[in-house]
């Protein structure tokens, strides 16, 4: 007889003992079968960037994983295949909630559509860390923000442009994207710094951002073929940086028109000088800090946090520096 309290009882809810015995045996067998697959699961944190498999976002995976390993947390790392697919990103958040993950770290593709999903996450008592943009929801015990310091990035780009042009010249700004607060912060900081510190640099054209590099390439092509004098281009997004660069190569003007971009993507043109510099986000540090905050939120030890991470201006001179290589590191797996 199995050592089961039910089986020891001579009466079971008024049933005759043999019935109780039979039921007990069946229940024990069923429980034994069910518990054969039981396993103590580690808490899982969903980390959902704008997309996966890129130089911009894989370091976030590495940073988050480096902290998760030391805190006994597992990571679910997935994202839309395209960095403009907000609907898929929202679906991944909903899927993470349904699966009962312990927390969600997300880098919203757009600011406004992500408000409701994140509010729902918080309403379910699931902690969240929002990366790279502020949603307008105040931080609290369950919500923190980790962002690249876009104002600092804007200042870096402005000072680089000012230095490249010697304080005088005409520039174009591409990739302006009002739905993303972080992009707006970049743009405003860039223009404020330029106006204050380099009043001789004139913004000749401002172009809205488009989702893909080819579309941005068309924008740049039109810009370069418009006859307007352009000494430098500041591209505020990854797609606009790539599109502008392709257009400069296409028009054979990459040595003439200086290009300062944002967000790490193409590395070889920086070595060749085709792209002068790129303000890169330290997504490795962002991932680390986000997971650290998440661990605190899961264990109720974290207060409201809004942390800014300094970006780095990547140029031909520092592309192989330890600092930049650390940022570009994508080893999310444990290293022996």
């Amino acid at each position: 007889m199995l050592p089961c309290p039910i089986a020891k009882s001579t009466r079971f809810g008024g049933w005759h003992p043999p019935i109780a015995e039979g039921v007990a045996v069946a229940a024990a067998l069923l429980m034994a079968g069910a518990c054969a697959g039981c396993r103590q699961a580690r808490p899982v944190v969903a980390v959902i960037p704008r997309t996966c498999g890129t130089a911009l976002w894989e370091p976030e995976h590495a940073g988050a994983a480096s902290v998760a390993r030391t805190r006994g947390l597992d990571i679910y790392w997935n994202a839309p295949m395209s960095d403009d697919d907000i609907q898929t990103q929202i679906s991944l958040i909903e899927k993470s909630l349904d699966r009962g993950y312990a927390g969600i770290i997300v880098a919203p593709i757009e600011t406004l559509p992500m408000r409701t999903p994140i509010r729902r996450v918080l309403a379910r008592g699931v902690p969240a860390v929002v990366v790279d943009t502020e949603l307008g929801i105040p931080p609290g015990p369950l919500l923190s923000y980790v962002m690249s310091d876009e104002k600092a990035g804007g200042r870096m780009a402005a000072r680089r442009i000012g230095a490249l042009l010697g304080g005088h010249g005409d520039i174009a700004i591409m990739g302006i994207n009002p739905p993303m607060m972080s992009n707006t912060a970049r743009e405003r900081s860039f223009e404020d710094t330029l106006a204050k510190e380099f009043p001789g640099v004139h913004v000749a054209a401002r172009k809205f951002g488009l989702p893909s590099a080819p579309e941005e390439q068309q924008v740049a092509e039109q810009l370069l073929s418009s006859g307007e004098k352009i000494d430098a281009i500041v591209a505020l997004s990854l797609a606009s940086t790539r599109g502008a660069y392709y257009a400069l190569v296409e028009f054979d003007r990459e040595r003439v028109v200086k290009l300062v971009g944002f967000d790490q993507d193409l590395i070889p043109p920086i070595r060749t000088g085709g792209i002068d510099s790129v303000v890169i986000q330290n997504t490795f540090a962002i991932g680390r800090i986000a997971m650290d905050l998440m661990d605190g939120e899961i264990h109720g030890k974290s207060g409201a946090a809004e942390i800014l991470v300094q970006p780095v201006l990547m140029t031909r001179d520092n592309v192989d520096s330890p600092e930049v290589r650390q940022i570009l590191n994508l080893s999310w797996w444990p290293t022996q």
Partner: peptide
Amino acid sequence: RRISLAVACLAAGAL
């Protein structure tokens, strides 16, 4: 007893 055992056997058999 037979019925009880049959129930138990069915459950065990299913498993």
